[in-house]
């Protein structure tokens, strides 16, 4: 990348008050190392331990969701083109905001948006009820997660989950998710 483009990119990142940004293929070791960096950074900010754990856990859920989705498409023999996702952690006023973006198959869009709309319409008690219901369901064979990640993020968030789904081509959408803590 040319020097002035790199400058522009960093300008954009710092205007958004981003603390950490990762874009590229997610491996488990990337998720782990970046997680350590996030925690070290927040520990130096001298914020409460519970707030550090909230940011860290939302980051882990988002990064593992991106990774698990990518891995599941590979298993199905339909690898996602340009195997990459993005996770960013920023600060808006007094709130930390954890966001992620990745490509999803067009067929998964209706289910994903229905789930997010449902969660957006629930209050804390409703979210807890959905969480308990999901956590008691038997695990699906071959599933890499328990279907609890989005619900857990919605419970930790201080405002409803924000998301967008933008068509990239006939087969893929770019899914972005923003969680404010």
């Amino acid at each position: 990348m040319k020097g002035n483009e790199l400058f522009n990119l960093q300008e954009l990142l710092s205007r958004q008050k981003l603390l950490i940004c990762f874009s590229g293929p997610f491996s488990h070791s990337v998720i782990e190392e970046l997680g350590k960096a996030v925690r070290n950074h927040l520990e130096n900010e001298r914020i409460e331990k519970s707030a550090i754990m909230d940011v860290f856990s939302v980051y882990v859920e988002q990064a593992q969701n991106v990774r698990n989705y990518t891995t599941s498409r590979e298993t199905l023999g339909r690898p996602i083109p340009a195997n990459s996702g993005i996770v960013v952690i920023g600060k808006e006023d007094d709130h930390y905001v954890v966001s992620s973006g990745n490509l999803v198959e067009a067929d998964d869009v209706p289910g994903l948006s229905a789930m997010l709309e449902k969660l957006r319409g629930l209050d804390k008690a409703g979210l807890k009820a959905v969480y308990k219901e999901q956590s008691r369901k038997p695990r699906e064979a071959g599933a890499s997660g328990a279907g609890l990640g989005l619900i857990d993020m919605a419970r930790k968030a201080t405002r409803p989950l924000e998301y967008s789904l933008r068509a990239v081509d006939d087969a893929y959408y770019f899914f972005s998710l923003e969680v404010q803590l």
Partner: peptide, 13 residues
Amino acid sequence: SYLNTSSIKCMID
């Protein structure tokens, strides 16, 4: 001290 959601599911089990 910390569990991700899929570990929470395992601990419930």
